[in-house]
Design a protein around this nucleic acid. Structure first.
Length: 278
DNA sequence: CATATGTCCTGAGAGC
DNA sequence: TGCTCTCAGGACATAT
């Protein structure tokens, strides 16, 4: 499941496309249900053909390709969406191909097994309305401890639930939320309004610590193998997981409590009852 | 307004 | 073996 570190890895893989021009937009014929592409393919193609890529940016868990027309192509991988630049990749589940010329990368592929992902072409005003700062919170790598406290200090929600809210802070998903809270020694069910100033500081430090390390490892490739880097390699951060999918195994920090799995908002949360006190 | 729940999707794995 | 069932969780729509 692509969260901030995985999407950052996708963006870095796409960086060499800056300066290239779009020469084609293809949707492989298949029995696959077409994933959400807006506007419809013909109009999409008309607006992007011949355009130059001017920047690759990450917006929370989305990949943004800026064009010289100021339109933006936005990849939203959601659960199983993947961005690939590799030539030698299976054609299975490919939903969209962007052909390029004038640079080292000749095609960008959006592949998605479950098909929950989306690709949008947005004008500047659409982009501002749908993905502007009122809709998407500050990036998890930019947010300060003070901002976290401001945004959540009066919320009654459990911290794990609040961290998944992209309007609060952008980029954290289910996997890294558990890892971050374990690193910060904060119980996932602790309501935000009960936080001490020191806990906001620790949370902030752990957000940075965990996400930066996961980026260095190029993200987490889980046993289902759904996420891989843009050149189709496995990430490495799964070897660093301390709680995620480790229910029943002893905590790697305190060593005397087994990791528990609970469910919050219909999502699994993993934590150590010894290290993460309420 | 804040918070809670339902929905989409397909492959993997469990259980019989 | 082969079927059915459940689960995984992004973002958004709808409900309380």
């Amino acid at each position: 499941m692509p969260e901030l570190p995985e999407v950052e890895t996708m963006c870095r893989g796409l960086l060499p496309t800056v300066g290239s021009s779009i020469t084609g937009l293809l949707r492989p014929t298949s029995n696959l249900r077409p994933i959400g592409i807006a506007p419809p393919l013909n109009q999409f193609r008309r607006r992007v053909l011949g355009r130059e890529l001017t920047a690759i940016e990450r917006l929370g868990k989305r990949v943004v390709l800026r064009l010289d027309s100021e339109d933006r192509i936005v990849f939203e991988p959601r659960m199983t969406g993947r961005v690939l630049v590799s030539e030698s990749v299976s054609t299975e589940y490919i939903r969209l191909v962007i052909a390029l010329s004038g640079g080292p990368i000749s095609r960008v592929v959006f592949r998605d097994v479950r098909g929950l992902g989306l690709v949008h072409l947005l004008s500047p005003s659409q982009f501002g309305k749908r993905l502007g700062p009122d809709v998407i919170g500050p990036d998890a790598l930019q947010v300060t401890a003070e901002e976290l406290c401001q945004r959540l200090g009066s919320s009654r929600r459990p911290i794990k639930v609040a961290l998944l809210d992209q309007q609060v802070v952008a980029g954290i998903g289910n996997l890294y939320a558990s890892e971050i809270l374990h690193d910060a020694s904060i119980h996932p069910e602790l309501p935000c309004h009960q936080f001490s100033p020191g806990q906001w500081q620790r949370l902030h430090a752990s957000i940075h610590q965990i996400l930066e390390e996961a980026i260095r490892c190029q993200g987490s490739t889980l046993s289902d193998g759904t996420y891989r880097t843009p050149i189709d390699q496995a990430g490495g951060y799964q070897a660093h997981h301390r709680v995620y999918q480790r229910a029943g195994q002893f905590c790697l920090r305190c060593g005397d409590q087994p990791i528990l799995r609970i469910v919050q908002v219909q999502r699994s949360t993993f934590f150590c009852p010894g290290c993460q006190l309420r």
